[in-house]
Structures are given as C-alpha cells and as structure tokens.
Design a protein around this nucleic acid. Structure first.
Lengths: 231, 231
DNA sequence: AGGAATTTGTGCGTATGTATC
DNA sequence: AGATACATACGCACAAATTCC
C-alpha cells in the first residue's frame, strides 16, 4: 500500500519528532529549500506541514518559519484515552479481564450481528481507574485470545490489520453501574460519574466501539484538549 | 476585515448548514462546477471544503461527491461549545445576564488582577441549557457593555481585536451549584452534572477563561469529537 | 526608523491517478 | 467499459508577515 507522498513526509517528520531527532522549538528549513531536498514540490510539502500543524506538532509562522512543538504533542497511542488523574496525567495501562465472541441480539442499538466483546480494567499509574468495554465487529476482526492480548490494542490492530482510529466521539453522560464487576479491584461502583463512548472507524466502516465507566471521581477526571490554528 | 476567499466560502457554507438551507445528507455540486459558480478556482474551493471536512460538517467521497453532515456538525463559531442536546445537535444561542469589572482578589487561583466577568445563559434551540461565566483579562480587553454584547463573543473578539481561540482544555468534573442564579429560567439547580473549563489564548498569553455549569442532564450532554489522519 | 530580503499565506491553473457510479 | 468526480502533485504569481541590515 503506497501512501501519498505528503503523508509519507508528515509521517517521517512525526517519527523524527517523536524520536527526538527534531527538537522542541527547532526550526525547519525554508519550504522551498526543504521541498527541493525532499524531492517534492512546495505544495506537497505544505500539505504535509499542514497535517502536522493540525495535529499540533508544528507551529507555522508566516514570514518566520516552521517550528517543532514537541510539548503539545499527544503521545500517540494514548491520544484518545481522555481519562487522567486529577493530579495531572498518569501513565495509562490495561489489564484484560475477558474476551468473548457474542451475539448482542438483545440490544436494539447493536451495530453488528456478531462482535468480540473485550472487557478490560484500565489503570493509571498502576491503579485501577476505569472499566472498559470494547466491541469489535467480528466480521472484520480476527480470533482473539484474552491471554495474548497486548496492552495497546491500538498498536496491535494498526500493525496487524492496517486499521487506525479515524474519528472519535466522546459523549459524557449520566452513568449507570455496569452489570459486570471487576475482580479484585478497589473500585467503588456507587460513585460512577459518567460514561464515555468512543468509536474507531476505518475509512467509512465503523469497526469498533469503546465505552468507559470511570469510578472514584475524586481521583480520575475526563480531560480533553483542543487546538486550532489562527483564523 | 477581509477574510481570505476560502474562509469566506467555508463560513458561508457553515451558515447555510446551520440555517438548514443545506440539509443533512445533501450533495453539493461537483467541484469544478461549484467553483465556477462561486467565481473561484477549484483549489480555493477545495481548501474551503477541507476546512468543513476537518470540522466534521462535510463528508468528502472520492468519485462520488461532497455530502453535508449536519448531525455531526459544530457550527464553526460554536466549534468549542461542547454542550449538545441528547437528541442531537441543537442551535446554540446566548443571552447576556451581566458584565462587570471586578477584582477577584479572594480567589487564590485567579489568573489576573482585574477581569471582566460576563455571565450568560446559554441556549440550545432557544431553551436554557447552561450557565456560562467568562473571565477576560481587563488589561487586554476593552470596555464591555452588557446591552451591546453580540451573541457570538468569539466573532466579536476575533473581528475587533484579532484574538482567537488557540487552545482549549475541557475538564469535566463534579459540579457545584454556582452561587448566582439565572433570572426567569426553568433550570433545576439541583441536577448539576459537571463543570467544563475552557481557556482562550492568544499566542502565548492566556486572555480569557470560560466555565459552564449545565443542568437538566436528561436533555443536555457533553459531546466531543476528534479526528485523526491515517498513520 | 526604514527598506530590502526572507519566509509563509493565498490563489490560480493544469495534468494525472483513482474511486465511484 | 465509460463517464464522472474527488485526490494527488506540480508550478507560478503575488500578498502579507517577519527578520535583518
């Protein structure tokens, strides 16, 4: 699968930023010169830079230059996991509880006939923070074994099937305690605050659905950050 | 204030979508034809359409056409207003309750010495949905009169002072009922669900701070949407 | 202070590839 | 298979912001 050249460039720059080859605040070469050294037209390079700018990894300043913004960069894998410790951040982790192939015929809003239902305990700094339930369209997935599931499902699916998260919709709403309880966790199921719903799509096909129920609202919060370029 | 032509076009289309002139699912004319009728080049039109697509108001399908997506649409000016009707969408509006110049010395986390405190009732489809409190750094603002405040503070400030929202952080947390009550509204102050905090920045200087307290969680929800390009 | 050089922003046009109908 | 429509890519000219001398 040949990616378009502008995406090849933006991806390479993304890796360079993540790897520290391009440092925070560093200025890229002027566009004409940079484009020539990359062997593409200025327009193509500009489209790649616009990508990075939209992702917040780059600041483009007219008359000045393009500057790397490593600080504002989401950590990639966890970019769409919006639960954080109130004390700030927290390293996300996951522990798989179960993975079953089920037919959710009883739910009227079920998007597919047959799904893999994965239930995980999400951790922040090693401590239980939320319950996670993932539905993956069985028609587009592959056999899943709870014992071999890696911590980062995102990376696993990206590598194995070329899937990626194209769009996400968070919806915080009144919570209801799920009817499945996590084993040996110190969660207090009475203190549910909200529910976040997240969808992963590939092109036009919705392939997965995720929902979180988080507990202990005194410690864990929903935090979302947005960026926009100047008008 | 002369906006670039591609922004003029995207803004006009945004208004047309919000106003219902362009209906959900409707297909726009082919790009060449549309561009000609607008009197711009195809490239300029494409840049406008890319704007709308990034905002989620448009689905662009290669070989097929451009389709309006009203359902998933933040209306541009309201792109950072993340409260919606649970039934989907809802046209945002605002009614100013008060605008005062105060010195919040009592609050230890007050970011500035003197601020304009604007209190507004936010509406969805004309019905009260949330209370909004805005703090604007008085040193960087201009005298404010509650009676002449336009509905869209964002557009007002963008036009008058060249300010824009550069970054936003939403933080949903346990709510406390504000100590100021809205006049003649049918809100039920007992059903507070959460609090959203939003900051507007200009370059590196934080200049404003916004918080919402929304009521009636059976009707209004917090909804956030995200997009990411393929890896 | 001011003007020239540099650098990105906007806008136009065209050719070709690729998905859809 | 052919026509249609969007995606990618190239190149150029001028505007606007910044930087530098």
């Amino acid at each position: 699968m040949d990616l378009p050249r502008y995406l090849q460039i933006s991806e390479r720059l993304t890796r360079d930023i993540a790897a520290g080859i391009l440092r925070d605040g560093e200025r890229l070469p002027p566009e004409v010169e940079f484009a020539r050294s990359l062997g593409v037209s200025v327009g193509t390079l500009r489209k790649a830079l616009a990508e990075l700018s939209a992702r917040g990894l780059l600041t483009r300043r007219q008359g000045s230059g393009n500057y790397v913004r490593r600080s504002a960069s989401p950590t990639g894998i966890y970019a769409f996991f919006h639960l954080e410790l109130k004390s700030g951040g927290g390293l996300p982790g996951a522990r798989t509880l179960s993975a079953d192939l089920i037919r959710p015929a009883d739910r009227t809003d079920a998007p597919w006939d047959e799904v893999w239902r994965i239930r995980r305990l999400r951790l922040l700094d090693g401590r239980a923070a939320a319950l996670e339930e993932i539905w993956i369209d069985a028609a587009n997935a592959v056999a899943i074994d709870a014992h071999t599931l890696p911590e980062s499902l995102y990376r696993h699916y990206a590598a194995a099937f070329g899937l990626w998260i194209a769009r996400v919709e968070d919806r915080v709403r009144d919570g209801t305690v799920p009817d499945w309880t996590p084993p040996d966790s110190d969660l207090a199921p009475g203190s549910v605050c909200g529910l976040v719903l997240r969808r992963a799509e590939s092109r036009e096909t919705r392939m997965a659905e995720v929902s979180w129920t988080w507990f202990d609202t005194s410690r864990v919060a929903y935090v979302a950050r947005w960026s926009e370029a100047a008008p």
